[in-house]
Write a protein that binds this DNA or RNA. Structure first.
Length: 490
RNA sequence: GGCCCUAUCGUCUAGGGGCCAAGGACAUCGCCCUCUCACGGCGAAAACCCGGGUUCGAAUCCCGGUAGGGUCACCA
């Protein structure tokens, strides 16, 4: 890959499944990288030893792959800035912290957790915003601080935030954002466990991995000035920033499991195709022209412009996702759908694995017929059920509705007989036969079509009747119709 | 509460001073096609948060209010 200096990253912490908000952020990074021939880095932020798990890391990676978000550098693919897991980069953070203490940009703080809580509560009681500025430690003699550290006294490393001035940065989708330094406390860089805090690790990694554009969720806006302060103190050039808005549920609250599906895995389970989720998420707030909506990842990348991303939070609309999913279902080839369907049909007991394997061409034709009517992959077993098995269950009430009419009672048995004697069984011959009889009796064909559908499929809705009959086959169709004739007599 | 972000149809959005009596998509409601469903076609209803400015002219620029969201940890 040619190096043009454009490098972005998605840096999740492996503390759960990949959330839609997260995928969308990853997606924007990916689109930006692809659009600009840049490098997309995946970095695992597992400094929270309590909550990070190996299992989550694996899940994260498989979810990313499922939705076609391939990373150029990161776990497994590796790259020039390995390792890509923060727990394996500890020496780097310690070294950076050391540097900052030596240069005076940071200092050792010996305040205990209890003291800090106390300070915060006092401030709150007095109506002040709790901003910790180091107390006695900020200006403690450096040699003495070092001595106390060497005796093993518990301490953190804090950033010596300037008390005046402001920290400003240009956000690619929001313009300039500025924070008064007096509102930023002396935040912790290294915890007493000698491990870095998020802000410190992220800034150090972004700088060292030469990330040129930091594209992330807007819940990180308030972290940005701190990271900028760290960048500057360490002597690095600043990256560009873009903060993308959150994804909200229908109630305008941050999307979560409460809203049903929230993780990539949930959507996969609910029959959403990865291409559809990808497409929908990319459209959500990305500011693409509104006249078209179905794009491949490549097309999406081609048209992606980070400045066009909307700054306001987007409500996740499951209905629209479904409609896009239905569009993608129709775009799948019957062969692809058949491959997808076979295991589902076997698992749901609609057909035996044996039978399916023996007759994939038939399954393919079935899928071609059903394709337009499917919204999710999970609709397949239910939709295809009547193409398999021999006898059907008929809803008594509906049965009465279909076969209770005199015309049907009088003519249906004859129709079955004629169908049975057809020299050839296909879409055309069955149609001619059924319409022919209706015409003879001077009745609309629908008076026969509906009962036949009900008899052959057990339902009142199906794909076109004649193509359905052809695919059902003569034997299965006739035997089901004869069943109903028998039931009519009873 | 402090700080920060955001504000066009129900939802996602187009719009970046006159081309907007605001366009598209999904959803909704009609009609057409038709063997049912789906697809498709046609049509309807539906929005610039409020108040001040700036300007000959504002959905578009500025300010204030309001509302929603984010964030205030030795979590990320």
């Amino acid at each position: 890959m040619e190096d043009n200096g454009i490098r972005v990253r998605y840096a999740p912490s492996p503390t759960g499944t990949l959330h839609v908000g997260g995928v969308r952020t990853a997606l924007f990074n990916w689109l930006f990288a692809r659009k600009n021939d840049g490098v997309f880095v995946l970095r695992i932020e597992d400094t929270d030893l309590e909550r990070s798990t190996e299992e989550s890391t694996e899940q994260l990676k498989s979810s990313m792959r499922w939705i076609h978000l391939d990373w150029d550098e990161g776990p497994e693919t590796n790259g020039p800035h390995e390792p890509y897991k923060q727990t394996e980069r500890m020496p780097l953070y310690r070294e950076a912290a050391q540097k900052l203490v030596e240069s005076g940009a940071a200092y050792y703080d010996f305040a205990t957790a209890e003291e800090l809580t106390e300070l915060r509560e006092t401030a709150r009681r007095e109506g002040r915003t709790p901003i910790y500025t180091g107390g006695e430690y900020r200006d403690m003699d450096a040699d003495e601080a070092l001595r106390r550290v060497q005796t093993g006294e518990s301490h953190t490393v804090r950033f010596r935030t300037p008390r005046e001035g402001s920290t400003v940065f240009g956000d690619m989708i929001r313009g300039d954002i500025s924070f008064e330094n007096e509102n930023i406390e002396d935040f912790v860089l290294m915890k007493s466990t000698n491990t870095p805090t998020y802000n410190f690790a992220a800034a150090v990694d972004d700088a060292q991995m030469k990330i040129s554009h930091v594209i992330r969720g807007d819940d990180h806006i308030s972290n940005t000035p701190r990271q900028i302060l760290i960048y500057k103190a360490l002597g690095y050039d600043l990256p560009a920033f873009a903060h993308v808005p959150q994804v909200l549920g229908p109630d305008k609250k941050k999307l979560s499991k409460r809203h049903g599906a929230a993780s990539v895995e949930d959507f996969a389970e609910q029959g959403i195709l990865p291409e559809a989720l990808f497409n929908y998420l990319a459209l959500l707030g990305a500011g693409y022209a509104a006249d078209e909506e179905i794009f491949s990842p490549g097309e999406l990348a081609e048209r992606f412009r980070i400045e066009k991303v909307s700054g306001n939070p987007a409500v996740f609309d499951e209905t629209k996702l479904l409609s896009i999913n239905a569009l993608y279902m129709r775009k799948q080839s019957p062969e692809e759908l058949a491959m997808l369907a076979a295991p589902m049909l076997a698992e749901s007991g609609v057909a035996s694995a044996d039978e399916l394997e023996r007759d994939m061409p038939r399954l393919t034709k079935i899928m071609a017929l059903l394709r337009e009517r499917l919204q999710r992959t999970t609709d397949i077993p239910e939709a295809a059920a009547y193409f398999y098995g021999d006898t059907l269950e008929y809803d008594p009430e509906e049965f009465e509705k279909q076969f209770g009419k005199d015309f049907v009672k009088e003519n249906f048995p004859e129709l079955v007989e004629r169908l049975e004697n057809l020299s050839e069984w296909n879409e055309t011959t069955t149609e001619e036969c059924i319409r022919g009889l209706a015409a003879e009796k001077e009745k609309g064909a629908r008076h026969l079509i509906h009962p036949v559908r009900f008899a052959a499929t057990g339902r009142t809705v199906s794909a076109g009747l004649f193509e359905t009959l052809e695919l059902l086959g003569r034997e299965r169709s006739i035997s089901r119709m004869e069943d109903t004739v028998g039931k009519m007599g009873a």
